[in-house]
Design a protein around this nucleic acid. Sequence first.
DNA 1: TTCGTTTCGTTGTCTGCCCCAACGAAACAT
DNA 2: ATGTTTCGTTGGGGCAGACAACGAAACGAA
Lengths: 393, 393
Amino acid sequence: MVHTSGVVSRAELTARTGLNRSTVADLVRELSQRGLVAEGSPLATGAPGRPSPSVTVRTDGIYVLALDVKVDSVAAATVSLGGHRLASKRVARPRSRRDISTVLDALAGLGTELMEELPDTQRLVGIGVSIVGLVPRSDAMVEVTPNLGWSDVPLAEALRARLRRRVPIVVSNDGDAGALGERVHGVARGIDDLLYVSGEVGIGGGIIAGGRALGGAVGHAGEIGHTLVDPQGEPCRCGARGCWETVIGEAALLRRAGLPEDGGQRAVSQLRGAALRGDDAALAAMEAVGRWLGLGLAGLVNVLNPQLIVLGGLHGEFHRFLAASAAEELERNSLVARGSPTGIVPAMFGVDSSLIGAAEDALQPLLRDPMTWPSWNAGDTSPDGFTGAISVE
Amino acid sequence: MVHTSGVVSRAELTARTGLNRSTVADLVRELSQRGLVAEGSPLATGAPGRPSPSVTVRTDGIYVLALDVKVDSVAAATVSLGGHRLASKRVARPRSRRDISTVLDALAGLGTELMEELPDTQRLVGIGVSIVGLVPRSDAMVEVTPNLGWSDVPLAEALRARLRRRVPIVVSNDGDAGALGERVHGVARGIDDLLYVSGEVGIGGGIIAGGRALGGAVGHAGEIGHTLVDPQGEPCRCGARGCWETVIGEAALLRRAGLPEDGGQRAVSQLRGAALRGDDAALAAMEAVGRWLGLGLAGLVNVLNPQLIVLGGLHGEFHRFLAASAAEELERNSLVARGSPTGIVPAMFGVDSSLIGAAEDALQPLLRDPMTWPSWNAGDTSPDGFTGAISVE
DNA sequence: TTCGTTTCGTTGTCTGCCCCAACGAAACAT
DNA sequence: ATGTTTCGTTGGGGCAGACAACGAAACGAA
């Protein structure tokens, strides 16, 4: 709770947990002794009564490394409790290069660089990786990434060998991580039912239902880019025909705007400029993609009834140009949306939602049980650099 | 756990709960004192070691009344712990009659009739109602039932007035109830990720994800009948165009088979007969509907990644005729299904899945906390007939 | 400024849930 | 007949968190 809020009064913790004042005091003391939170002077509320001391996350105790693999770029960040990015770096990478080893080397290099910036007293507790591809829940083997051309990559192992840190490495799907990031620290804070759409070259998605990530039987849920919207549509990379991705993906958007559909980031920049200038073709392309976006969302809203739809990546960036037509089409085509108003908002973290989500994933074990986790007092640095459980995943 | 299993050994309860033997013994003793379970002689297992006594649900202690409103029929059942139907009755009703009061009178009459069959020692603890329509999570007001022509019906209140029993009444959507029923006592027992499709006049659905019902923001999730499958398709009752329902619903099936599309149960019977005889037109209709079924399922599987798909109602009945083509189309069109094999099976309870689910809903408060619930020993029958919390919903 | 009110932290006590260990009982295997 | 395995039973104990009483720290009205 302190992690998601950043700062909370102890009284508020009491109210929100439903625990007794004494219990909350005990817990806060213990967390404080472990170097995870700090108690501060009361926040001026203006309300009568004795003021309650504030509890703040410490950003100088522990941290996690977050890594992100997209089609056009890789990124890394060091993230502390509270979701604060201590440092963050994203570098473009040529789309054509399919050599896995090179990508992983670059990624690990980025991560190492950022970790070395931090003082020795700050301790790494986990590594979270988000990648555009199917990631099963059971292990860290990435099964298929149609948009990268990879398959069956033991990502966690490969990164462990390069990073040489004895901490758990968790791998998750780009869409799932984005949803998590936006829910915990972004625009969807506190929202229990949300749909996150990450539009890039392909369309990914992440679903949070009833406050929990929807993973499905093996963790493959959320592949919303491959829902059918037009049985007579174009063939898709996935083998089917008329997938949503084929009408709202980057290629479709560029093509409609009269730009080269494999133009990559350059073409997207051109499109952005054109749209901002009010160029007719660009705006028409946006509007048309917005309609297909809304049409696909209508089906998803009927199935999932989310409270909020968060657009990440491409569609988040172009939210202002396509949200209106998407919302209109959603309203027209969704029985559920008519009875349960569903907002469509851009992601707070832009392309970095999944990076924040990956960090959150890596923090999970600590957050789930901060008390039995080894303590990170500045004093007791173990020679090994890591004293906790050494799990592979 | 005893409720879902019917009979379990105490040792198995220990293993499955992770609790201590002593604790389990205590709990079983208390449940037994409350008249909810009975301890029996050990089941012959043939394994070495001291045999463990069996624990059975008592079917003569408490019961719930389950009610079900479909387009063509209404049904009632009295259901005990363990999901045993003590009595059950379904009556057809003319589809044209839209008079709400008449339907509710008939339904309440059915319920009263079944309850009066039971001895006075058996105590009613709740009433569960399933209905084909949108039911918000927050209250018992049924918002819209496109297929019945009702809107904004205070169903719980109306039934309370007719049934005159002071127990909680819970109302839920037909699809959600069906999914629950099949999961707890039917073909999907113990499966944590499943999609239930109830094909009738309209197509309803129920989703269980991660072991919990997926309700969405206001409880409207699972309206899978209105996902888009063909933007150039026919208009649907819901206001959109090309909904799944328009190509796999009863009307579509009958039309393809050359039967009157509003022929109702009679026409469906004719179709069944024709299919069983091997009539070409009937089989071709089944096959075509199976293809559309699989196509729609492909999208849903991509989004939800269920472990199992349960076909209820019409499609459950005709499973043998359409499952093959549906499975083929699913495999072809779903990226997720290819990596995570997804079975398609008919519902165990046929049209009554939702009836069992409604009963399960009504049992929930008792199951959630059987210890603080008032005890139902034969001795302490209160004059009022109900001693527990008197909640409206 | 003073005093009542409100809200909160602190401390000691207590309860309920569950674990644990030792012992004996009831089955199977040899 | 004896060892092995699995289990129920009993008494003891630990721990999280509730509860109640007291004092402290703010605000508002006189």
